[in-house]
Nucleic acid binder design. Structure first.
Length: 427
RNA sequence: GGAGGAGUACCCAAGUCCGGCUGAAGGGGUCGGUCUCGAAAACCGAUAGGGGCUUCACGGCCCGCGGGGGUUCGAAUCCCCCCUCCUCCGCCA
């Protein structure tokens, strides 16, 4: 949600900046009119309410003195009716204004490259050596089948398409990665570990920006107004919804493992094979609440934390700065980490690190105070995947495949795999 | 799921039966001071949260006692719905 004061003072400037995105912002045209009507109504009702308050005192006084107050009571009756009517109109206008504000995307930072599609994203840096195989490489969906460490067919039977059973050392690898990532973020990067609820209510989904615009992307619980979380970002960021944090608490850093559920509406036919695009996948998330002046610095820090995992795992990747068309609804600035996937012969997103500035904080009402006397301010929120676990498994399997069909286990994971060095077929 | 009880400011807690000088007693806390070598204790004083409208500003006004409706000239106080927490029962990993 954008700052109303900014919209009031510089609507054209905001429009220009939002125009760089490939999003429909025509709703903004109604802002000025509704905003003005809102203030008009507020002034009217408040004047009447003020009058009602003073006269009520007078009535009280008169009653005490046993005077007859029937006339002014009758008059106040009219005033109250008028207030009620104006309040009703005000409520409607405020709802409309609220809805309007909730559907306007965040303003991109000035250094965000202007562009329409992912082709306009800018490569910031790359790391690692792509593997050069002296044999015929295989995609991970073939390797997992041969090694019998994942089963897509039975998951389709049991649930449906885009679900998977991990098996044996495949399941172990997934679990090892989760533990390894969580331990690293907790112990080396200073995050507090959170294990969040996997369902959240509508207010939470609105707070982080998944709603109202993207309801079709989420799985919803039928008999409650709950949603399966598309990312741990939602419960973890909303932990502090409607709160005022102390400045000493900032930056506040959480890391959370969770399953994530996405309907992937509109992705039919994309990444249909393997672990890349599932309705349910595991992810380790990083969330930071920071002071506004720190948020860009914090974004670099957070991105570095996610990169550290890829480096430890020895997976080649690159860092992309997202262009305005690829920023997503909520971010002011975003880096994607893309891991090298031999089967795709391309880099594939494995982490997304965003600075939302005050966009989410304003929706979720997450504020802080610099000291006891100062005014409350909105915090800036950031988050990033650290990392998407399923895609990391796919990347390890493909990048670490050996000529004999086994998978070498990256060294940092071996303690989590009871010292195993390879995933081999069962005898 | 059933039966009770409760939700008041940073925390605890009065007020709710009997609606109006209660934006809300009293503690605790916090800040400042006295005392002290210093601290604690004690005492004195100050402060009461958040949002909106308006104003160049000082300020003024409005909202606000879990949330939302309603009754009333007027609601923390009365009525209805919802949420959360606690206790007991039932069910259950």
């Amino acid at each position: 949600m954008l700052d109303m004061k900014l919209l009031r003072s510089d609507l054209e400037g905001v429009k220009e900046k939002l125009g760089r995105r490939s999003e429909d912002i025509s709703a903004l045209d109604q802002f000025a009119e509704k905003d003005e009507r809102r203030r008009e109504l507020i002034q009217q009702t408040e004047e009447l309410k003020s009058r009602r308050n003073t006269v009520s005192q007078e009535i009280s006084q008169m009653k005490k003195e046993k005077k007859n107050a029937d006339d002014i009571i009758a008059e106040m009756k009219k005033v109250s009716a008028e207030i009620k009517q104006l309040d009703e109109e005000l409520r409607t206008v405020e709802e409309e204004l609220e809805h309007l504000l909730l559907t306007i995307p965040n303003i991109p930072q000035d250094d965000v490259p202007v562009g329409e599609t992912e082709d306009d994203n800018e490569e910031i840096r790359s790391w690692g050596q792509k593997p050069a195989f002296a044999f015929e490489q295989k995609p991970h969906w073939d390797l997992v089948r041969e090694l019998d460490i994942a089963d897509f067919d039975r998951a389709s039977k049991v649930t449906g398409s885009r679900f998977v059973f991990y098996k044996g050392l495949g399941a172990r690898l997934e679990r090892a990665l989760i533990n390894y990532m969580m331990d690293t973020h907790e112990e080396e990067h200073g995050y507090e570990e959170i294990l969040p609820p996997y369902m959240v209510n509508r207010d939470s989904m609105t707070g982080t920006g998944q709603l109202p615009k993207f309801e079709e992307d989420a799985f919803q619980i039928q008999e409650e107004d709950y949603f399966l979380i598309p990312t741990a970002e939602v419960p973890v960021t909303n932990m502090h919804r409607d709160e005022i944090l102390h400045v000493e608490e900032l930056p506040k850093a959480y890391t959370a493992f969770s399953a994530c559920f996405r309907s992937e509406a509109g992705s039919a036919g994309r990444d249909t094979r393997g672990l890349i695009r599932q309705h349910q996948f595991n992810k380790v998330e990083l969330v930071r609440f920071v002071r506004p002046e720190e948020s860009n610095k914090e974004l670099e820090l957070l991105t570095g934390h996610a990169e550290k995992i890829l480096q430890d795992l020895g997976l080649p990747y690159r860092v992309m700065k997202m262009c305005t068309g690829d920023l997503g609804f909520t971010a002011a600035k975003k880096y994607d980490l893309e891991v090298w996937l031999p089967s795709y012969e391309a880099y594939k997103e494995i982490s997304s690190c965003s600075n939302f500035e005050s966009f989410q904080a304003r929706r979720a009402d997450i504020r802080f105070k610099r000291d006891t006397k100062s005014k409350t301010e909105f915090v800036h929120t950031l988050n990033g995947s650290g990392l998407a676990v399923g895609r990391t498994v796919a990347a390890i399997i493909e990048n670490y495949q050996q000529e004999d069909g086994t998978i070498e286990i990256p060294e940092v994971l071996r303690p989590y795999m009871r010292g195993r060095t390879h995933i081999k077929p069962k005898q």
